[in-house]
Computed example of a mutant assay.
Amino acid sequence: MGKVICAGLGPGDPELMSVRSDRVIRAARHIAYFRKKGRTGQARTIVGGMLRDDVIEYAMEYPVTTELHFGSEEYRNLMVDFYAEWADRLAELALEHDVVVLCEGDPFFYGSFMHLHTRLQGRAEVDVLPAIPGMVGCWNALDMPFSWGDDVLTVLMGTLPEAVLTEHMRRADALVVMKTGRNLPAVRRALDATGRLEDAWLVEKGTMPDQRIARLSQVDDADCPYFAIVLVHGQGRRPEASP
């Protein structure tokens, strides 16, 4: 009897993957990964060149991404059916084989695998391999300390209503905004309303070969990359520098 192993891939650079995830992925005979229809998928791209020649791949293609609003009933129903179907398929495969599911960042930090994890309980043995979250790779790409002393780190989703974003940003110290994409204009307006836009950075595909770093105030509203994180550094308590 096999099991389902979710391997966290880290922020994007394969060299930042854990030793255990690297070993498990290279040995895997069965690999599954999420992707948008018609795309290779970010997770599959990260492990390019690592897989066995005889690997069997299972591309878990989202039925919808940005075509419908994530809060709509139609979107929810499609995604519920999608996760239920793949939980069934993985549980069946795990009756005979180990199946490795790839997940960017850390699987339990807003990762899609969480929806499968809950559905697999009691149906298959599940092992989750932790990893460096994507935001950590992004703030290290800026080469500046991100939080100081007693700073409170706030992590927000760009999908939140603009008023909610603004409310949280007003009381945040160090600030991370994930799931930007087409939500970037609203994120920018919320930062501007709280006086933090000039301190905000946009990091796209952090730690990857095509990484891009820019001041958010200098990014056009129409430029809304999906794999991007907005960062605002904390300015908390720190020891005074020697004269």
Rank of each mutant, 00 (worst) to 15 (best):
C138Q: 04
D127F: 06
A190V: 07
V47H: 02
H69A: 13
M135G: 04
G122R: 05
R89H: 10
H30W: 12
K37S: 13
R188V: 11
D81E: 14
L153G: 03
N77I: 01
R182Q: 09
D53H: 10
E67F: 05
P185I: 05
A28R: 02
D54K: 08
V187A: 03
R171M: 11
L102Y: 02
A241K: 12
R35C: 15
C103T: 10
G48P: 00
A32H: 03
Y83L: 07
A241R: 12
D81I: 05
C6Y: 03
D81G: 11
M135I: 13
L175S: 09
R76I: 04
P209G: 09
G236W: 01
H168S: 13
R171C: 10
D54V: 12
V47I: 12
T66Q: 09
R196T: 07
E104H: 01
Q218E: 15
V230T: 15
L116R: 00
A94Y: 02
Y75V: 03
A59R: 02
L68G: 07
P243Y: 07
T159F: 01
R23Q: 13
D150T: 14
E204P: 00
R238K: 15
V232S: 13
I31N: 08
F227D: 00
P161R: 05
D81M: 08
G8Q: 06
L16G: 07
R237Q: 14
L102W: 03
P185R: 04
D143P: 00
D223M: 06
L165R: 12
Y83D: 07
A32F: 04
G10W: 02
W86F: 11
V152F: 07
D151K: 03
V24R: 10
Y110H: 12
V99K: 02
V128Y: 01
G195P: 01
R23C: 06
M1R: 11
P145Y: 02
D150F: 12
D150S: 14
L191D: 04
M50G: 05
T40L: 12
E104N: 12
R212E: 05
D223P: 08
A94C: 11
Y58D: 12
A28P: 09
A174N: 09
K37E: 14
E85P: 03
G41N: 06
R35Q: 09
L90E: 08
V203K: 00
T45V: 01
F70D: 10
E240A: 15
I5S: 09
K36N: 00
G8M: 09
P130M: 07
D98C: 07
F113H: 10
D221E: 15
A59Y: 04
Y83T: 03
P209E: 12
S21M: 08
T65P: 00
T40K: 05
A172P: 06
L156V: 11
A124D: 05
D106N: 03
G236N: 02
R20T: 09
M50T: 05
D150K: 14
V4T: 06
E167S: 13
V99E: 08
G206I: 01
R89I: 05
M79H: 08
V177P: 06
I132A: 09
S72V: 05
E240L: 15
L142Q: 10
R29Q: 13
L216N: 00
V232G: 13
D173R: 01
V99S: 06
D199N: 12
A84E: 15
V99A: 07
G111F: 08
R26M: 10
R26G: 10
G206F: 01
L191C: 06
W86N: 08
A91E: 08
S72H: 05
